[in-house]
Amino acid sequence: MDFNFVKEYIPHYIEAAGLTIRIAAIGISLSILLGLLCSIIRYFRIPILHRAVGIYIELSRNTPLLIQLFFLYFGLPKIGVVLSSEACAIIGLVFLGGSYMAEAFRSGLESIANSQIEAGLSLGLTKGQVISYIVLPQAISISIPAFSANVIFLIKETSVFSAVALVDLMNVAKDLIGLYYKTDESLLMLVSSYLIILLPISIVFTLIERRLRHAGFGN
């Protein structure tokens, strides 16, 4: 194990980690918004949109991210749409993440009894107020475990972005292996980088889940 090599190339990993984190943060935030929107459309069975969202969810969940990225990066330019690596990565992540988030939120929404909605309506609240004050807060805290699993899953999925020439962690490691044959060192740094990013997130989610379970409101 060549530790001088490790030391020398740590800055490359840090830079790539920054990119990975940035893309993950943007992509996951947008996934959450898209997921919320889709889950609400599905839950209230809004005509037409309800169908469209159903098709989107099936399409997104049943195709690999890598193929989705290839389509965006290599396929779209054929019809004149050229996107940067970063744009492809973010769009791909949101396309995948949106459907997973939608399913997580939907399970939360569906666990809210109809009588809760009626209790809110009978107080004279509008439908929108019932959703934002009564349904969503409960649904979101119920979907936290599925939600946190999705966040971690999506961060790990960013490792395929090197396929669209994005200089992320995976790409740096592959480059170093190709250039210097320092396979052990490069892979060690790669694994460590992902662990350093993911472990704290994992721990925070575990703590949140534990707190929610203790507070577990239930009627």
């Binding site: 009894a113 009588s115 809760q116 009626e118 209790a119 809110g120 009978s122 004050y133 009564i134 807060p137 409960q138 805290s141 409101f217 239930g218 009627n219």
Partner: peptide, 11 residues
Amino acid sequence: MVFQSYDLFPH
């Protein structure tokens, strides 16, 4: 309106 199942908001 008051319901049989109370339906207070648990959160």
